[in-house]
Amino acid sequence: MLYFWLALAFVAGMMMPLQAGVNSTLALHSQGAIWASWISFMVGTAALLGVVLAMRYEWPVIADMKHAPWWAWTGGFMGALFVATGAFLAPRIGAATMVALLVAGQLIASLILDHLGWATFPQHSINLGRALGVVCLLAGVVLIRMN
């Protein structure tokens, strides 16, 4: 089962540049990246609603959701920023540079989150191997951007 989850993460990662390209194309036909991002979120919302209804999930209990910390509600904002930024940057800096920078930012933030064990992540201290992984990734960003 672990290999399935690893493959799923890999395939989802492959969707990042594709999503940015699709959304930047939509931006050309919808008055810009913000409208394209909004449309993307509406389509995504409809798709998730369809899944919820098809799977017959129970609706969340609002009283339970009130106990979530304030920052637990910021994921939608972060997703909107990510989608809008991708739609805006894709035609300006290209897929490889954009994704390299996105992944570098994601990896650095991930190391910090793992080190702190924050927001439901299991705690994994930063060590030499993890630090070298970041350095190699940053070198990759430089090499990709040199072209």
Rank of each mutant, 00 (worst) to 15 (best):
I34K: 02
W35G: 02
W35M: 13
F41H: 14
M42C: 13
G44N: 00
T45E: 06
T45F: 15
V51R: 02
V51P: 00
V52F: 14
A54K: 14
A54N: 05
M55D: 03
R56Y: 02
R56F: 00
Y57T: 00
P60N: 06
V61S: 09
A63C: 00
A63D: 08
A63M: 06
D64P: 02
D64V: 02
D64K: 12
K66E: 09
H67Y: 08
A68Q: 09
P69S: 09
A72P: 01
W73L: 13
G75N: 05
G75K: 07
G76C: 10
F77W: 11
M78K: 10
M78H: 11
G79R: 04
A80D: 00
L81D: 02
L81H: 07
F82C: 10
V83Y: 01
V83W: 03
A84G: 06
A84C: 14
A87G: 08
L89Y: 09
L89R: 06
L89Q: 03
P91I: 07
P91M: 09
I93H: 03
I93L: 08
G94S: 05
A95E: 05
A96M: 13
A96F: 12
V99N: 04
A100K: 01
A100P: 04
V103T: 04
A104I: 03
Q106F: 05
L107P: 07
I108F: 15
I108H: 10
A109V: 10
A109P: 01
A109F: 10
S110G: 15
I112A: 13
I112R: 08
H115A: 12
H115K: 03
G117F: 09
G117W: 07
W118M: 11
A119F: 15
F121I: 02
P122Q: 14
P122A: 14
S125D: 12
S125A: 14
